[in-house]
Write a protein that binds this DNA or RNA. Sequence first.
DNA 1: TGATAAGCGAGACGGTACGTCGGGTCTTCTA
DNA 2: TAGAAGACCCGACGTACCGTCTCGCTTATCA
Lengths: 229, 229, 229, 229
Amino acid sequence: MCSRTSPRPRATGRPGRPRSAEADTAILEATRAALVELGWSKLTMGDVATRAGVAKTTLYRRWANKNELVVDAVAVLFDELELPDLGSLRADIEHVVLQFAALLQRPETKTALMAVVAESTRDEPLRERIRASIVDRQKRLVLEGRQRAQERGELPTDRDPGAIEGTDDLIFDVIAGAVVHRALVSAEPVDQTWVQRFTALLLGGLGAAAAQAAPGARGPSGGPGPDRP
Amino acid sequence: MCSRTSPRPRATGRPGRPRSAEADTAILEATRAALVELGWSKLTMGDVATRAGVAKTTLYRRWANKNELVVDAVAVLFDELELPDLGSLRADIEHVVLQFAALLQRPETKTALMAVVAESTRDEPLRERIRASIVDRQKRLVLEGRQRAQERGELPTDRDPGAIEGTDDLIFDVIAGAVVHRALVSAEPVDQTWVQRFTALLLGGLGAAAAQAAPGARGPSGGPGPDRP
Amino acid sequence: MCSRTSPRPRATGRPGRPRSAEADTAILEATRAALVELGWSKLTMGDVATRAGVAKTTLYRRWANKNELVVDAVAVLFDELELPDLGSLRADIEHVVLQFAALLQRPETKTALMAVVAESTRDEPLRERIRASIVDRQKRLVLEGRQRAQERGELPTDRDPGAIEGTDDLIFDVIAGAVVHRALVSAEPVDQTWVQRFTALLLGGLGAAAAQAAPGARGPSGGPGPDRP
Amino acid sequence: MCSRTSPRPRATGRPGRPRSAEADTAILEATRAALVELGWSKLTMGDVATRAGVAKTTLYRRWANKNELVVDAVAVLFDELELPDLGSLRADIEHVVLQFAALLQRPETKTALMAVVAESTRDEPLRERIRASIVDRQKRLVLEGRQRAQERGELPTDRDPGAIEGTDDLIFDVIAGAVVHRALVSAEPVDQTWVQRFTALLLGGLGAAAAQAAPGARGPSGGPGPDRP
DNA sequence: TGATAAGCGAGACGGTACGTCGGGTCTTCTA
DNA sequence: TAGAAGACCCGACGTACCGTCTCGCTTATCA
């Protein structure tokens, strides 16, 4: 599950001294530590190098600039997101949303995520790197959750009437967007209560869509009613 | 409706030469122009000053730093958001979401919004300024839309069973979050189609909530069915 | 003996509010105080204004710039130099040299004198102001001393053979230059011993010149021998 | 004879890129050029850097401030002062005084010398730097000239009666002071005539001192009489 | 007595330079 | 070749003064 966040790879088996693998990890750790202490805007390459016990040259040999370094340093944290099968779509969603919220509360992600996204509005390669390292990693969870719910019969299969075409992206933006906005823009806690209310809203929407296309079919979580005691 | 975005106000009627009002507007305009041309990260105070035909000190006399300046420069754009009564909750939502998306596509907002939010994670006064200048301005729309829908009977009133307590904040984060995430993180177009699908999902969720509490009551937009030809 | 150091005079009896005389003196005093505390290079017009309890405008209405203000502030100190008749040229010289040295040791003159002279190398009006306010005030002493010595018969009169034409300027530069150089460049104390040795050298020079032109005539201080017990 | 004027030296053989020697000379040359064009007070570090084709940081890495830079830039000019043996003390003095006067007429020295001396009244390290780089370099000439004159028999040797103990410093301040004062304070030309009259005065003083201690001994330049046709 | 003409304190204004900091590149030596 | 060290160029930072300019107000002379 742990995809590689590799800095500017160089073919192995080349002549000359090989790159130090320790340096790589030391740099990424130092970057996260610096993010925690200083935040994005006060993080400097020189400081990261010092913390990592490494020369600035070594940083730039691996990452083109501060943005890409930070993306890589933070990306690995998104590997923590998992989707254990909790038996119902509702439970799965609530679980992953809470997980995601917890991740966003960490100082290193909190300060870094919006910053690199902001930078990416003017930096196409960076946007691509973010997509590959962070966004797709989250999108995969939506895909998995949807498939699992379809297997359980909580959602219509793609060929069913009522299946909403291309819905994965929509769901993803709604979930991730809502959580990020709550956590970083509104700056309010993403707690159990909020998550339950949000999940209810989302499942209601999914159910309504299914019901509208195929009246009589079971909506998500076995109908409009609560499946929570 | 146009709330003031005033920089570090100084009491009037005081001794000494009063602050130039022209400088204020020139600076804010110059800031927006610079954002369009250069983006957030390459915008410099010196450049803004030059564009505005103003000394750097005049900037710093009014705004403590780049962040606060940019918030004020961008905030006024959010005044454009309006909520004309289009006859149905669905139409109202679709309209405002499209409006908001259009605003986010503008280069000055696109590059600035995430950046200042990122900075605000480490800067409490900035967060407060953002809340006052930008967030609350948007939240107002949610409030208005909800009240209007309640008057139309599309949503249960607050005292009705089925009224979701404190839902305004949730709705706000869902709408704003989804649009922002789609536009800036996923970096995909927020077009008519997406907006309709998103609105359908949201209305479904609201309707399901209402139905769950008071079965038989009309959900939003007159029930689960489409009110669109 | 106290010549006026007037700032940009304005005719009296004019309509309008007359200039405050208190402001004048307060400014000059404040300038000297600032020179003592901060030295020339860290003295600022704003600070002087504040110390004097006066607006910056009031300074600039009187003096065109920092240099001219400082010259006037310091010039008045040179009024202290006097030439009491001590009975012999040697005593007169030693007295005035010690006086001058004491003046140069004061922090306000020490820091200001060389500074304004330095500025004057590129500022003709300033040079003229220095000449009028400071240099000529010192030169007068040489003139007086020479005339008094001539009356005593210690120096040949101007029409005597042996009278060195235009010697006043030379003597002035030698005396003032030596003292200034000793005090400010070499930065060594100008004490009794040094003054006596310097005076002996100077009188020797003057005497030799007289003797050369009119052998047998008395040199200064009644011949080569010491007139000091 | 050319003593080094080195900026903040750093040990060689150290790790890291060594300081650029070209930058050193380019900066000093640029400083002199800027002094000629702009004078001391309008010379800026940024301008010097630009002229030298060097970053401002490179300047500050070598010199702590404008004062020290200018001292070093100007000091090398004082290496030009030499004391060729012209056969008599009188000729030697006249020669060196003219040389020194010529040096002081150059715009770079004229504007810089007094300025740094003025600054040095409040800056002990600067004073020390001036002493080492400039003052001692001149004092050496006095020492040489005196020794040469003693070898010629024009001046009593140190152990002779009549030898004035510690006179070198006095002579130095008299010569340098008189010339500087004439050139910069009085702002009058130091030409052949003035130099001859000054030298005559000085030699007279020296001769009188010697004669007073050891009557009958030859004074400087072979007695009080003129050795000039 | 009221118009006119400064002077004055306060402080904003356009500039210019400061000295520092960070980004990203380069050069040297050592491993 | 990698890597540590550090000098280098560049450009922005936020501050400090400069000398000028508006303000509202005061204080004089002149009609």
